[in-house]
Design a protein around this nucleic acid. Structure first.
Lengths: 236, 236
DNA sequence: TTGGACTAGTGGCCTAGCCAATAGGTCTGT
DNA sequence: ACAGACCTATTGGCTAGGCCACTAGTCCAA
């Protein structure tokens, strides 16, 4: 079924399910599907690709393990991450849909990250932070919500902490955070508040004051959590 | 600030192939199989586990994608990495071998966890914490290093924080932490110091004082890091 | 408005089977 | 003896067809 080149390599035979998975992802890319979109039913994929349903199922298992897709019994397979970078995310998402938990985790990580950044930041780090602030300000001045600048800022801070493990962990929950972030910045006046909070954090980091940076970040996260909790059901 | 209601979660249903994969890895761990060892044939696995061969095949696809086994047509499935349960861990380990990073992450997570535990702990939580302390003390009195009690203690604190995401993250780095823990407790006098530090943390949590608990935990982690940093190369 | 029944669509898993690759033995000719 | 071809048991790859379970939507009755 597959054309091997007559060369003489160890013959990397590809399993059929890999090709199917690739086809599926290609189709996703072509049609600009994004998170939340639904794939074709297994049966249809099978007939369209000319393979058995079992093979399609294997491909979906692979994609599920990689974290690109979530297969839901009786419903279908939906994309969880079109970029395909988040692996652990799925496991996390299953256990941590609840907003407060996300905020707790974010507070834990980012507060420490801010403190570390204050003591470890280099000049390039500071430049990246400033650049992120500029992006955010420009966006807000233009009437935007500054989401992109917000992301850049936190990414810059995280990088400035120079801790690979913490960075890795932030990556893991970054997508979860993104939801709360957009939510928060959608509130009137919030982008400005957020920007000034960012400035205070940046200043503390520039000063090299870990405690001050931690406090500023903590305050910022608390500010964001305000909204998120309002949106969610009232709790204890 | 966060719902406890242990009663009604989205009911995480596990796919059969996941259970099969887990069983297989468990079997691998039990029999001390290492890289290069061969798994049982699919057909035998299927009959032994009471599932169809298709499901076993799905499990192997999953394990293959994760990188634990390599399935070879006509030959069998061989282990490529006998790490057993740690999948994510390895990715982390690759990027985060350095002790200081581990300590940073631990400080970030456990400090927050201690604070949350102080405000959320229930009576059973406190009982579990006390039990862990008892275990540790008994072990030390008997001449041990109190490693087990130490683990129990931190697990109890983590549980008392009632934050699934933070708990998940602690799990991810727990194995990495274990190394530093054993290292630290091996130093003369350390077990006693550690025990009293634990007591202070437990007291703060019982009092319901988040700041005090956080401070106590931070001090404890710093205490441990003393050793670890000495062992590792000095850093900034 | 609520809650129950029904239904169509979808994934989960199974049985049964044939094909293809591998490893390891056996047979043959030199 | 030895090297090579050949056979064969074992094992994975993939298909076909089927039944069951779950989900979501619809409609109807309380």
């Amino acid at each position: 079924m597959s054309d091997r080149q007559p060369g003489l390599q160890p013959l990397a035979r590809t399993r059929l399910y890999e090709q199917v998975a690739q086809q599926i992802m290609g189709w996703v890319a072509e049609n600009d599907l994004t998170t939340g979109d639904r794939l074709l039913p297994e049966r249809e994929l099978a007939t369209r690709l000319g393979v058995s349903r079992a093979t399609v199922s294997q491909a979906l298992v692979a994609l599920e393990v990689v974290g690109v897709v979530a297969v839901r019994h009786g419903d279908g397979a939906v994309l969880t991450d079109a970029s395909g970078s988040a692996k652990v995310l799925d496991a996390l998402r299953a256990h941590a849909k609840r907003l407060p938990d996300i905020i707790d985790a974010r507070d834990a990580l980012e507060t420490k990250i801010a403190a570390l950044a204050a003591s470890r930041r280099t000049e390039p780090d500071l430049a990246a932070i400033d650049a992120a602030l500029d992006v955010m300000e420009a966006d807000i001045d233009a009437g935007g919500r500054g989401v992109e600048g917000d992301e850049l800022f936190h990414a810059a801070i995280t990088a400035a902490a120079h801790s690979s493990l913490l960075e890795k962990m932030m990556q893991e929950i970054s997508e979860l955070i993104l939801e709360t972030r957009i939510e928060s910045l959608s509130q009137p006046g919030r982008p400005r508040d957020s920007l000034s909070a960012h400035r205070r954090i940046a200043d503390a980091i520039r000063l090299g004051d870990p405690d001050l940076a931690a406090a500023a970040m903590h305050h910022h996260v608390a500010q964001v959590s305000d909204v998120a909790i309002l949106r969610d059901a009232p709790r204890d």
